[in-house]
Design a protein around this nucleic acid. Structure first.
Length: 954
DNA sequence: CAGAGTTAATCGGTCTTAAAAGC
DNA sequence: CGCTTTTAAGACCGATTAACTCT
């Protein structure tokens, strides 16, 4: 039973099922139908008939809907409501009162109230089989409504959910466990062995070092780790490791010492600044400077750090309970953007055609807009409006604009503002910088690097770790994506007074900029951030955290994938359960089951509620009436805007029961604006998922299905051929995953032009080929009879007119080339003090054009071209062959470019595909990892690169 | 629900690559 | 003519920060 097929994501399973004609539910659930797997989802197999993702892609650009990214284009055209099918309008339905009165107790809560009634109405109208009495049915609902307000699950509800799943859990998944468990055990063993080995090595090294240094030592980090390991009493081997490691050190009392240090040292904690293995430094350099201190002072010692550093957490995994993230944390705070530099006096915006002088504060804001004149944002009315409102406010607060005569000017109309002078100035600046040349720019960069140096790294448990975004976000105009109601508002400059620093007690608190204070300094080791502030637009909290290469992020990434892998052990049961619950009499359960089906099959996001002052985007639970259309017999058309306002458009067959359910969920009185899943939200859904597996939530399905699909795709790649072929195959697999996750990118503005250019180029090659053939004909005219088709132009260029045009183009091009070359030579000559060439020389050179023209003329008349001397039929044929190859190459390149124009491979590579799959692929197929993982990814996924081998399985 | 983390597209710059120029 | 060097388009990369999930 536990064949690998059962592990297929629904993507595959349901595809197989639904392709079968009248699949019954029972047939569905057994999931053994092998059938084509991914292909069922693949646009190529499904798309043309059912309008799979292919259609989505195709549709996108032709639809008048902004393909991806910002919604500016449609906005510019003035019509916000282009989105007929998109359901992008505000959900009026949400607010719309519903006439029938519900029970009074719920009246206060409009949406819930509405939901409830809707569902009741639906139930009545559908005559949903009610094994439960209607009153019974109502009870949980009432409770739920109340419970929801209190944010606590109703006992009834919990019971209901649990009962069925418990027994099922037992029998359904049993079959899978032994195998999987065995695999896991094996895996664990391998890892542990490795860990043990490394531990040994480390110990050996340490001993050596210890003897050499002769004294105390112990990275605080290790001590810490082991301590935690002890606490949780985890895997014996690991524990052993920890203990061993610590042995030498623990009695050295690093912890106690440290603690003492912490307590006693509010002042110069420098000794503790670099705890851990930097004993050498600690010993040799008494690290004096606190403020300027640590990071810098350490640089000299870096060389040996570097080798020694490298904390391979994945080889030394102490299970922590996860709440404590560090014991010591040392860092230098955040880097603020440079203060605003006022524009030179002569650069002024104009109002109604007249230059006005702005107070600096307002000038800065005006400049924000001025700098964006050539972006799409500037054309977005919402953006402009929001900007202008804020601009006016700031202007008012700062004293207002003054005309050339010194009198106040009231800035009242956006239309009368002209930011062009500012724009021009910025462009000028850019050009200046460009003109600096490589050397100058290098110097500039060195300067910048120096300023950043001390923020680049921090010390977490004594280990040097890279900090991610240590720069405080600079002020500017908020670039909300999609139809964000607040886009264009002024994002204020963040003052130190708003920034809270989180740092180890033992560390020196970084000094705030002179004359300023921090909002607060805290020592919270249950979080990973180093600094935080609240952003003024949406009130969101921003954090400075460690880089993706850090151990903290690495470990959590690792855990994420392990969690997804664990889902393998539960997925069968989960699918069985929800397939069964699709028919539940309880509306809430039925909705939940349906949602789970969609999340599993289509990789939808959970879909939390959003407020009205955000862009109107949805995920699964927040789908509304207008986002789904049903087409008999079982096709569902999804059309909605997801995260980042990326359109999700898909026509897909679903199993009968899901189709039926969706129909019910859409039934009157529901209408545009109403929630499809009115009895479900993400919290409930996730709570339900927790019952199956600790830590299971909706998003895990995305990771699981993405990685699972990747594994499946990679398995199909034959291990043969050149590296570039295998690489291409990998990318194809990657692409399937990207499509599954609906990862898109905007078609670059130049795409169409590029495609046309390339097409023209290919035609040019075809023409060249034709000419070669004509040369052959000139050498041996008799061939034409033997093989007439061979000498005909390719159909793409079988067009007299085009050929004529092309000939003209070629002549022009040649003229151009000759002239340019002439000028260049001339310049060179003059530069070296010689006299330039004369026009006469140019004319001479252009003689060749005449010949070309003549050649084309006879060619057009006779269809023959005199081959160059020395040409033979064999040589020409070889050249034809070569030309064919070039054409082929260009064509496939064009195809790939066209196919990938809207697909973004990066996101899935970075976030969804277990990197160990890629590592496995590279090892097994002998593809250099560098081809697939760029530098930053190699760093980020170091744990995977060093721990997965060629047999690794997701 | 605020808070903490993860996921996402995009932007601006750099590096690659393939064709043209030079030898 | 065939090889190497130069050049420019455009692919690719990393940084950035918005937008999401989930507790």
């Amino acid at each position: 039973m536990s064949s690998s097929e059962d592990d297929r994501p629904l993507a595959a399973m349901h595809g197989a099922r639904t392709n079968g004609t009248s699949s019954t539910v029972s047939a569905d659930t057994n999931g053994t139908t092998p059938g084509p797997t991914f292909a069922n989802k693949n646009p190529k197999s499904v798309g043309h008939e059912t309008g799979g993702r292919f259609d989505k892609m195709a549709n996108k650009s032709t639809n008048g809907v902004r393909p991806v990214g910002t919604a500016v284009v449609p906005l510019v055209n003035g019509s916000v409501g282009d989105s007929g099918g998109l359901g992008r309008g505000k959900r009026k339905g949400r607010q719309a009162p519903i006439k029938e009165s519900g029970s009074s107790s719920e009246d206060s809560d409009a949406p819930l109230n509405k939901r409830r009634r809707t569902s009741n109405a639906i139930r009545k109208e559908n005559g949903l089989k009610q094994e439960e009495s209607s009153s019974d049915d109502d009870v949980p609902l009432a409770k739920k409504t109340a419970a929801k307000r209190r944010n606590a699950p109703s006992p009834t509800l919990v019971k209901r959910e649990k009962k069925p799943s418990a027994p099922l859990r037992r029998d359904s998944s049993d079959s899978d466990i032994p195998l999987a468990a065995a695999k896991l055990a094996k895996e664990k063993q391998r890892i542990e062995q490795k860990a043990a080995k490394t531990a040994k090595e480390i110990r050996a090294e340490e001993n050596k070092a210890a003897t050499a240094a002769g004294a105390k030592r112990k990275p605080a980090g290790n001590a810490n780790t082991s301590e935690l390991a002890k606490k949780t009493g985890k895997a014996p081997l690991k524990k052993a490791n920890g203990i061993k490691k610590e042995e030498s050190s623990d009695d050295d009392v690093p912890l106690a010492k440290k603690r003492k240090g912490v307590v006693q040292k509010p002042t110069e904690s420098t000794k503790k600044v670099a705890p851990g293995k930097k004993i050498k430094e600690v010993d040799t350099k008494p690290i004096a400077g606190k403020g300027k201190g640590k990071a810098k002072e350490e640089t000299p010692g870096e060389a040996d750090d570097e080798e020694e550093e490298e904390y391979k957490w994945w080889e030394n995994q102490a299970e922590t309970d996860g709440t404590q993230k560090w014991t010591t944390l040392v860092h230098n705070g955040v880097l603020f953007p440079p203060a605003y530099e006022p524009l030179p006096k002569h650069v002024k915006m104009k109002y109604a055609g007249v230059e006005v002088t702005l107070p600096v504060e307002a000038e800065e804001v005006a400049g924000f807009f001025g700098a964006m004149l050539d972006t799409q944002h500037a054309l977005n009315p919402t953006f402009a409006e929001n900007f202008f409102k804020d601009f006016q406010t700031i202007l008012k607060q700062s004293g207002g604009a003054k005309g050339p005569d010194g009198k106040s000017v009231n800035i009242l109309a956006f239309q009368k503002c002209d930011f062009k002078p500012m724009y021009d100035y910025f462009e000028e600046k850019k050009a200046e910088k460009k003109a600096l040349g490589t050397a100058g720019r290098k110097a500039l960069k060195a300067e910048k690097d120096k300023a950043e140096e001390k923020y680049l790294y921090c010390y977490l448990d004594g280990r040097k770790e890279k900090v991610g975004n240590f720069r405080v976000e600079p002020p500017g105009l908020f670039r909300g994506r999609g139809e964000h109601p607040k886009t264009g508002m002024v994002k204020a400059r963040v003052q130190p007074e708003q920034v809270t620093i989180n740092i180890g007690k033992e560390a020196t608190v970084p000094a705030p900029p002179p004359g300023h204070n921090w909002a607060d300094v805290i020592h919270d080791n249950t979080v990973t951030w180093l600094a935080t502030w609240k952003e003024n637009i949406n009130g969101n909290i921003k954090y400075v955290m460690l880089a993706a290469t850090s151990s903290l992020k690495g470990m959590s990434d690792f855990k994420k994938f392990e969690k997804a892998r664990e889902l393998k052990n539960h997925i069968d049961r989960i699918r069985e359960d929800y397939t069964r619950d699709l028919k539940s009499e309880l509306m809430a359960d039925r909705q939940r089951a349906t949602a789970m089906y969609l999340i599993d099959k289509l990789a939808l996001r959970a879909g939390n509620e959003k407020s009205d002052d955000e862009a109107d985007t949805v995920g699964c639970c927040s789908l509304r009436y207008e986002h789904i259309t049903l087409e008999l017999p079982n096709i569902v058309v999804f059309d909605f805007l997801g995260k980042d306002s990326i359109r999700f458009y898909q026509k897909t067959p679903v199993i009968h029961q899901v189709f039926k359910n969706l129909k019910i969920f859409k039934k009157a009185p529901k209408t545009k604006g109403d929630m499809i899943f009115d009895r479900l939200d993400t919290t409930q859904l996730n709570k339900h998922l927790q019952n199956y597996m600790q830590g299971l939530s909706a998003k895990v399905f995305r990771t699981y299905n993405a990685s699972w699909t990747m594994q499946e795709q990679l398995d199909e790649i034959p291990n043969e051929g050149a590296v570039h072929e295998k690489y291409a195959a990998y990318n194809l697999a990657n692409k399937k995953v990207a499509i599954l996750c609906n990862h898109q990118r905007t078609v670059s503005t130049t795409h169409e032009i590029m495609m046309q250019k390339q097409e023209e180029k290919i035609k040019g090659l075809r023409y060249q080929k034709l000419r070669l053939k004509r040369m052959i004909l000139s050498l041996e005219p008799a061939r034409k009879k033997k093989n007439p088709t061979f000498f005909r132009p390719d159909p793409e260029i079988d067009d007299e007119e085009w050929i004529r045009d092309h000939q003209v183009f070629l002549i022009e091009q040649e003229k151009d080339r000759i002239t340019k070359k002439f000028e260049k030579e001339n310049e060179k000559l003059r530069e070296s003090g010689e006299k330039g060439l004369k026009d006469k020389d140019l004319k001479e050179r252009l003689q060749i054009i005449k010949e070309m023209e003549a050649e084309f003329k006879t060619e057009n008349k006779t269809g023959k071209i005199d081959p160059k001397r020395g040409a033979t039929i064999e040589k020409l044929e070889a050249q034809v062959q070569k030309m064919e190859e070039r054409i082929k190459k260009q064509e496939t390149e064009a195809q790939v470019r066209e196919d990938n124009k809207t697909v973004a491979l990066g996101t899935s590579k970075i976030n969804y595909i277990d990197p160990r799959l890629t590592v496995m692929f590279c090892k097994k197929y002998d593809v250099p990892i560098e081809k697939i993982f760029a530098k930053t990814l190699r760093d980020k996924f170091k744990w995977a690169i060093e721990s997965a081998d060629e047999d690794w399985k997701f």
